[in-house]
Amino acid sequence: MNKEELIIETENLQKKYITDTVETTALAGVDLKIKKGEFVAIMGPSGCGKSTLLNILGMLDSPSSGAFRFLGQDISKATERQRAKLRKENLGFVFQSFNLIDELTVEENIALPLAYLGVSKADTEKKAREAMERMGIAHRRNHFPQQLSGGQQQRAAIARATVSNPSLILADEPTGNLDSVHGREVMSLLSELNEAGTTVVMVTHSPSDAEYAHRIVNLFDGQIVTENLNVRRHATELL
Protein backbone atom coordinates (compact mmCIF):
# COMPACT_ATOMS: atom_id res chain seq x y z
CA MET A 1 0.00 0.00 0.00
CA ASN A 2 1.54 3.28 -1.04
CA LYS A 3 1.87 5.56 1.95
CA GLU A 4 1.07 8.67 -0.05
CA GLU A 5 -2.34 7.35 -0.79
CA LEU A 6 -3.33 7.17 2.85
CA ILE A 7 -5.75 9.82 4.01
CA ILE A 8 -6.01 8.49 7.56
CA GLU A 9 -3.55 6.52 9.59
CA THR A 10 -3.83 5.76 13.29
CA GLU A 11 -1.47 3.85 15.52
CA ASN A 12 -2.45 2.47 18.89
CA LEU A 13 -5.12 5.14 19.25
CA GLN A 14 -6.52 5.27 22.77
CA LYS A 15 -9.26 7.30 24.38
CA LYS A 16 -10.09 7.20 28.07
CA TYR A 17 -12.78 9.15 29.90
CA ILE A 18 -12.19 9.90 33.52
CA THR A 19 -15.21 10.89 35.60
CA ASP A 20 -14.72 11.28 39.35
CA THR A 21 -13.56 7.80 40.28
CA VAL A 22 -14.44 5.76 37.23
CA GLU A 23 -12.14 5.42 34.24
CA THR A 24 -13.83 4.27 31.05
CA THR A 25 -11.84 3.14 28.08
CA ALA A 26 -13.58 4.01 24.85
CA LEU A 27 -10.76 3.15 22.48
CA ALA A 28 -8.12 0.64 23.46
CA GLY A 29 -5.47 0.87 20.77
CA VAL A 30 -6.91 1.26 17.32
CA ASP A 31 -4.69 0.85 14.24
CA LEU A 32 -6.52 1.94 11.16
CA LYS A 33 -5.39 2.95 7.68
CA ILE A 34 -7.77 4.46 5.16
CA LYS A 35 -6.78 5.14 1.61
CA LYS A 36 -7.91 8.05 -0.49
CA GLY A 37 -11.09 7.20 -2.33
CA GLU A 38 -12.10 4.41 0.02
CA PHE A 39 -15.58 3.89 1.49
CA VAL A 40 -15.19 2.44 4.99
CA ALA A 41 -18.02 1.39 7.27
CA ILE A 42 -17.38 1.11 11.00
CA MET A 43 -19.72 -1.29 12.76
CA GLY A 44 -20.16 -2.69 16.20
CA PRO A 45 -22.56 -2.81 19.16
CA SER A 46 -23.60 0.24 21.19
CA GLY A 47 -20.81 1.58 23.35
CA CYS A 48 -18.05 -0.15 21.40
CA GLY A 49 -16.38 3.19 20.62
CA LYS A 50 -17.59 3.75 17.04
CA SER A 51 -18.68 7.33 17.56
CA THR A 52 -15.60 8.14 19.63
CA LEU A 53 -13.42 6.91 16.80
CA LEU A 54 -15.38 8.90 14.25
CA ASN A 55 -15.14 12.05 16.38
CA ILE A 56 -11.40 11.67 16.65
CA LEU A 57 -11.07 11.04 12.93
CA GLY A 58 -13.24 14.14 12.40
CA MET A 59 -10.95 16.13 14.70
CA LEU A 60 -13.84 17.01 16.95
CA ASP A 61 -12.19 15.16 19.80
CA SER A 62 -8.59 14.35 20.58
CA PRO A 63 -7.13 10.97 21.55
CA SER A 64 -5.65 10.29 25.00
CA SER A 65 -2.64 8.67 23.40
CA GLY A 66 -1.46 7.18 20.12
CA ALA A 67 -0.75 8.73 16.77
CA PHE A 68 -3.20 10.10 14.26
CA ARG A 69 -1.99 11.26 10.89
CA PHE A 70 -4.24 13.01 8.43
CA LEU A 71 -2.82 13.20 4.92
CA GLY A 72 0.53 12.31 6.44
CA GLN A 73 0.41 15.15 8.99
CA ASP A 74 0.45 14.26 12.67
CA ILE A 75 -2.44 16.02 14.29
CA SER A 76 -2.73 14.30 17.65
CA LYS A 77 -1.13 17.41 19.17
CA ALA A 78 -2.77 20.04 16.94
CA THR A 79 -4.42 23.03 18.60
CA GLU A 80 -8.14 23.63 18.43
CA ARG A 81 -7.57 26.38 15.91
CA GLN A 82 -5.39 24.19 13.65
CA ARG A 83 -7.97 21.44 13.79
CA ALA A 84 -10.73 23.86 12.93
CA LYS A 85 -8.75 24.93 9.89
CA LEU A 86 -8.14 21.33 8.76
CA ARG A 87 -11.83 20.59 9.33
CA LYS A 88 -13.16 23.36 7.24
CA GLU A 89 -10.73 22.71 4.39
CA ASN A 90 -10.94 18.93 4.20
CA LEU A 91 -13.88 17.44 6.02
CA GLY A 92 -17.60 17.14 5.63
CA PHE A 93 -19.92 15.76 8.33
CA VAL A 94 -23.25 13.98 8.10
CA PHE A 95 -25.13 13.26 11.34
CA GLN A 96 -27.93 10.92 12.32
CA SER A 97 -30.01 13.86 13.58
CA PHE A 98 -29.16 16.04 10.52
CA ASN A 99 -28.14 19.00 12.74
CA LEU A 100 -29.33 21.74 10.47
CA ILE A 101 -29.55 25.20 12.03
CA ASP A 102 -33.24 25.93 12.58
CA GLU A 103 -32.89 29.67 12.08
CA LEU A 104 -31.33 29.34 8.63
CA THR A 105 -33.00 28.33 5.39
CA VAL A 106 -31.88 25.28 3.47
CA GLU A 107 -29.73 27.34 1.16
CA GLU A 108 -28.19 29.31 4.04
CA ASN A 109 -27.41 26.10 5.89
CA ILE A 110 -25.71 24.65 2.86
CA ALA A 111 -23.72 27.82 2.25
CA LEU A 112 -22.48 27.99 5.85
CA PRO A 113 -19.15 26.11 5.38
CA LEU A 114 -18.30 28.38 2.47
CA ALA A 115 -18.81 31.41 4.67
CA TYR A 116 -16.15 30.17 7.09
CA LEU A 117 -13.85 29.46 4.13
CA GLY A 118 -14.20 33.04 3.01
CA VAL A 119 -15.63 32.17 -0.40
CA SER A 120 -16.95 35.13 -2.39
CA LYS A 121 -20.66 35.76 -2.54
CA ALA A 122 -21.01 34.85 -6.21
CA ASP A 123 -19.04 31.62 -5.80
CA THR A 124 -21.01 30.73 -2.71
CA GLU A 125 -24.28 31.10 -4.55
CA LYS A 126 -23.02 29.04 -7.42
CA LYS A 127 -21.62 26.24 -5.29
CA ALA A 128 -24.64 26.10 -3.01
CA ARG A 129 -26.94 25.91 -6.03
CA GLU A 130 -24.89 23.11 -7.53
CA ALA A 131 -24.90 21.19 -4.24
CA MET A 132 -28.66 21.59 -3.92
CA GLU A 133 -29.24 20.47 -7.48
CA ARG A 134 -27.02 17.45 -6.95
CA MET A 135 -29.09 16.48 -3.92
CA GLY A 136 -32.39 17.32 -5.56
CA ILE A 137 -33.53 19.87 -3.04
CA ALA A 138 -33.14 23.08 -5.03
CA HIS A 139 -36.91 23.60 -4.97
CA ARG A 140 -36.76 23.75 -1.15
CA ARG A 141 -33.96 26.26 -0.97
CA ASN A 142 -35.97 28.94 0.89
CA HIS A 143 -37.58 26.61 3.38
CA PHE A 144 -36.55 26.24 6.97
CA PRO A 145 -35.41 22.79 8.19
CA GLN A 146 -38.60 22.11 10.18
CA GLN A 147 -40.62 22.48 7.01
CA LEU A 148 -38.80 19.55 5.38
CA SER A 149 -39.23 15.78 5.65
CA GLY A 150 -36.49 13.75 7.32
CA GLY A 151 -35.13 12.55 3.99
CA GLN A 152 -35.03 16.06 2.63
CA GLN A 153 -33.28 17.30 5.75
CA GLN A 154 -30.62 14.63 5.43
CA ARG A 155 -30.13 15.47 1.76
CA ALA A 156 -29.68 19.11 2.76
CA ALA A 157 -27.17 17.99 5.39
CA ILE A 158 -25.24 15.99 2.78
CA ALA A 159 -25.34 18.97 0.46
CA ARG A 160 -23.84 21.02 3.26
CA ALA A 161 -21.19 18.38 3.93
CA THR A 162 -20.14 18.34 0.29
CA VAL A 163 -20.54 21.94 -0.75
CA SER A 164 -16.91 22.79 -0.06
CA ASN A 165 -15.76 19.73 -1.96
CA PRO A 166 -14.05 18.00 0.99
CA SER A 167 -11.66 15.09 0.53
CA LEU A 168 -13.25 13.15 3.41
CA ILE A 169 -16.85 12.73 4.48
CA LEU A 170 -17.59 11.40 7.95
CA ALA A 171 -21.10 10.07 8.43
CA ASP A 172 -22.48 9.07 11.81
CA GLU A 173 -25.44 6.73 11.30
CA PRO A 174 -26.72 8.82 8.40
CA THR A 175 -29.85 6.72 7.97
CA GLY A 176 -30.64 6.20 11.66
CA ASN A 177 -33.53 8.65 11.67
CA LEU A 178 -34.92 7.77 8.28
CA ASP A 179 -37.34 5.20 6.92
CA SER A 180 -35.94 2.57 4.58
CA VAL A 181 -36.87 4.32 1.35
CA HIS A 182 -35.22 7.57 2.36
CA GLY A 183 -32.36 5.62 3.93
CA ARG A 184 -31.56 3.93 0.62
CA GLU A 185 -31.75 7.25 -1.13
CA VAL A 186 -29.17 8.75 1.25
CA MET A 187 -26.89 5.75 0.90
CA SER A 188 -26.87 5.95 -2.87
CA LEU A 189 -26.01 9.64 -2.63
CA LEU A 190 -23.02 8.82 -0.43
CA SER A 191 -22.02 6.10 -2.86
CA GLU A 192 -22.16 8.48 -5.77
CA LEU A 193 -19.95 10.93 -3.91
CA ASN A 194 -17.49 8.18 -3.19
CA GLU A 195 -17.46 7.12 -6.79
CA ALA A 196 -16.67 10.69 -7.72
CA GLY A 197 -13.52 10.42 -5.60
CA THR A 198 -14.47 11.47 -2.07
CA THR A 199 -13.34 9.26 0.78
CA VAL A 200 -16.24 8.24 3.02
CA VAL A 201 -16.04 6.92 6.57
CA MET A 202 -19.39 5.90 8.00
CA VAL A 203 -20.47 4.61 11.38
CA THR A 204 -23.54 2.39 11.13
CA HIS A 205 -25.62 -0.25 12.82
CA SER A 206 -27.25 -1.29 9.62
CA PRO A 207 -25.73 -4.21 7.70
CA SER A 208 -27.57 -3.10 4.58
CA ASP A 209 -25.95 0.33 4.77
CA ALA A 210 -22.58 -1.29 5.32
CA GLU A 211 -23.08 -3.10 2.03
CA TYR A 212 -22.31 0.18 0.24
CA ALA A 213 -18.77 0.28 1.69
CA HIS A 214 -15.57 -1.20 0.27
CA ARG A 215 -14.43 -2.30 3.65
CA ILE A 216 -16.17 -3.00 6.95
CA VAL A 217 -14.31 -2.46 10.20
CA ASN A 218 -15.83 -4.20 13.23
CA LEU A 219 -15.19 -2.64 16.58
CA PHE A 220 -15.70 -4.28 19.96
CA ASP A 221 -14.77 -2.87 23.35
CA GLY A 222 -12.66 -0.19 21.76
CA GLN A 223 -10.64 -2.46 19.54
CA ILE A 224 -10.84 -3.53 15.93
CA VAL A 225 -11.82 -7.17 15.92
CA THR A 226 -12.23 -7.82 12.21
CA GLU A 227 -11.72 -5.96 8.96
CA ASN A 228 -13.53 -7.36 5.93
CA LEU A 229 -13.40 -6.36 2.34
CA ASN A 230 -16.89 -6.07 0.96
CA VAL A 231 -16.77 -8.61 -1.79
CA ARG A 232 -19.96 -7.55 -3.44
CA ARG A 233 -18.88 -3.96 -3.75
CA HIS A 234 -15.52 -4.93 -5.06
CA ALA A 235 -17.19 -7.28 -7.45
CA THR A 236 -19.48 -4.59 -8.80
CA GLU A 237 -16.53 -2.33 -9.25
CA LEU A 238 -14.70 -4.99 -11.13
CA LEU A 239 -17.60 -5.39 -13.52
Binding site: G58, L60, E80, R81, A84, K85, R87, K88, E89, F93, N99, L100, I101, D102, E103, L112, P113, Y116, L117, R160
Partner: peptide, 16 residues
Protein backbone atom coordinates in the same frame (compact mmCIF):
# COMPACT_ATOMS: atom_id res chain seq x y z
CA UNK B 1 -25.80 24.83 21.62
CA UNK B 2 -26.53 22.84 18.47
CA UNK B 3 -25.90 25.86 16.31
CA UNK B 4 -22.57 26.51 18.01
CA UNK B 5 -21.58 22.84 17.63
CA UNK B 6 -22.42 22.85 13.98
CA UNK B 7 -20.61 26.02 13.22
CA UNK B 8 -17.55 24.51 14.83
CA UNK B 9 -17.96 21.30 12.86
CA UNK B 10 -17.91 23.19 9.61
CA UNK B 11 -14.79 24.99 10.71
CA UNK B 12 -15.70 28.09 12.73
CA UNK B 13 -12.99 29.31 15.08
CA UNK B 14 -13.99 30.08 18.64
CA UNK B 15 -13.19 33.75 18.09
CA UNK B 16 -15.63 33.81 15.20
Amino acid sequence: AKEVGLRKVVGAYRSQ
